[in-house]
Design a protein around this nucleic acid. Sequence first.
DNA 1: TCAATGTGGACTATAATAGTCCACATAGAG
DNA 2: CTCTATGTGGACTATTATAGTCCACATTGA
Lengths: 144, 144
Amino acid sequence: MEIIRRNTEYSIRALVHLALNPGREVTAAEIAEAQEIPLVYLQKILQKLTRGGFVGAQRGAHGGFYLAKDPEDINLLEVIELMQGKLAINKCFLGKDGCNRAPKCVLKNNWLQLEQRIAGFLSQITLLDLVEQVREGGLPGGGE
Amino acid sequence: MEIIRRNTEYSIRALVHLALNPGREVTAAEIAEAQEIPLVYLQKILQKLTRGGFVGAQRGAHGGFYLAKDPEDINLLEVIELMQGKLAINKCFLGKDGCNRAPKCVLKNNWLQLEQRIAGFLSQITLLDLVEQVREGGLPGGGE
DNA sequence: TCAATGTGGACTATAATAGTCCACATAGAG
DNA sequence: CTCTATGTGGACTATTATAGTCCACATTGA
């Protein structure tokens, strides 16, 4: 059972890398190398982050990516939800399956509480927090 | 993004059904009908619950399944982990991929905290709690 | 105009989940 | 002892999600 996909992990690493390199345009190739992410896959991820408004992109020679928001204004929940869809404990909460049991389902309330706790936790962690943790000695960062 | 699989949802419904019908052997067919679960799939699930020690099984005519533990001794975390494997925020925690970044990974600590919160929450909800919620008016229960 | 870069969409590969099938083992009823 | 109702086990298929690739194209700076 896995909650965070590789996809998302890559995104966060990419964002941290950008946050650590402010004021310039960083190429996908640079991020890919530093963060050990397959380049072509990373390009897709960066496209998604761009459309999601987290990063800006500049085409052409000397182009690249840069953070489009301040690190303290990006939290893990929104990145995760951009990359892998809305947080949901199970299908019931995605409105799929049209679960006819929902109206009286006792599990629903329990799942809802869990969902709120997870969302609460994730939304309190910002990119700035991660960057500070990196500066205190951690990776991703990557090859820094 | 989904945390609880259908698999697990079915298991919990089956366990609740058994808890609501103590003192007798309940056939897979009965559970399948009451809980709206494909019979042959449910059989697989019941086998897993049996091997996991949550239910007992009796073969032959008039055979069926019954809870092997008291409802207050079964919590959601153990059922979930039986059905879909150990709770893990991501692959790092499954020891897969041999993530060479792990030693300094700043995400790891954040994921670990989240994991502990989720596990703490789920392990506090017992089958007895669910049964009481059902008696107060919810489903699954199913056709009850 | 060329080279370095991002964009978009289609495509493939791999893995996980969901679900099915069938031969077999066991236990109770007659 | 045999028939029938039941659970068991394993192999199998189907469906979906994730991961990853490829290529033609757009843009920008030199």
